[in-house]
Simulated scan of single mutants.
Amino acid sequence: MKLSAELKAFEKRLGYQFQTPRLLNEAVTHASMSTPNRDDNQRLEFLGDRVLGLVMAEALLNLDTKASEGQLAPRFNALVRKEACADVAREIDIGEVLRLGRSEMLSGGRRKQALLGDAMEAVIAAVYLDGGFDAARALIIRLWGSRTTSVKEDARDAKTSLQEWAQARGLEPPSYVLTKRSGPDHAPIFTIAAKLSTGQTASATAGAKRAAEQDAAAVLLAQLEQEK
Rank of each mutant, 00 (worst) to 15 (best):
R13H: 13
R13I: 01
R13V: 05
L14Q: 05
L14E: 02
G15C: 05
Y16K: 07
Y16M: 12
Q17P: 00
F18H: 09
F18D: 03
T20S: 14
P21E: 04
P21T: 05
P21Y: 00
P21D: 01
R22T: 06
R22W: 03
R22C: 03
R22M: 06
L23M: 11
L23I: 05
L24H: 10
L24W: 13
L24N: 13
E26Y: 00
E26A: 04
A27W: 07
V28K: 02
V28H: 05
V28L: 06
T29D: 00
T29L: 07
T29P: 03
H30Y: 10
A31Y: 00
A31E: 07
A31V: 02
S32K: 02
M33A: 12
M33P: 05
N37K: 08
D39C: 00
D39W: 04
D39K: 10
D40I: 01
N41G: 00
E45T: 06
E45D: 01
G48I: 06
D49W: 09
D49P: 01
D49H: 10
R50D: 08
V51W: 10
V51E: 11
L52G: 04
G53Q: 12
L54S: 04
V55K: 11
M56W: 08
A57P: 06
E58T: 07
L60W: 11
L60H: 04
N62R: 15
N62S: 13
L63A: 10
L63T: 00
T65E: 13
T65A: 13
A67Q: 01
A67P: 08
E69D: 14
E69A: 06
G70R: 08
G70N: 10
L72K: 07
L72S: 04
L72M: 15
A73G: 00
A73H: 12
A73K: 10
P74R: 01
R75T: 06
F76A: 06
F76W: 14
F76E: 03
N77F: 04
N77S: 09
N77H: 12
A78Q: 07
A78V: 01
L79Y: 07
V80A: 08
K82C: 10
E83G: 11
A84W: 04
C85E: 13
C85A: 15
A86T: 12
A86C: 05
D87E: 14
V88D: 08
R90K: 15
R90L: 14
R90D: 11
R90A: 12
E91W: 03
E91D: 14
E91L: 09
I94M: 10
E96P: 00
V97I: 11
L98M: 13
L98A: 03
R99V: 13
R99I: 02
R102D: 08
R102T: 01
S103W: 10
S103M: 03
S103T: 02
E104P: 05
E104C: 08
M105R: 08
M105H: 11
M105N: 05
L106A: 14
S107G: 04
S107D: 11
S107Y: 05
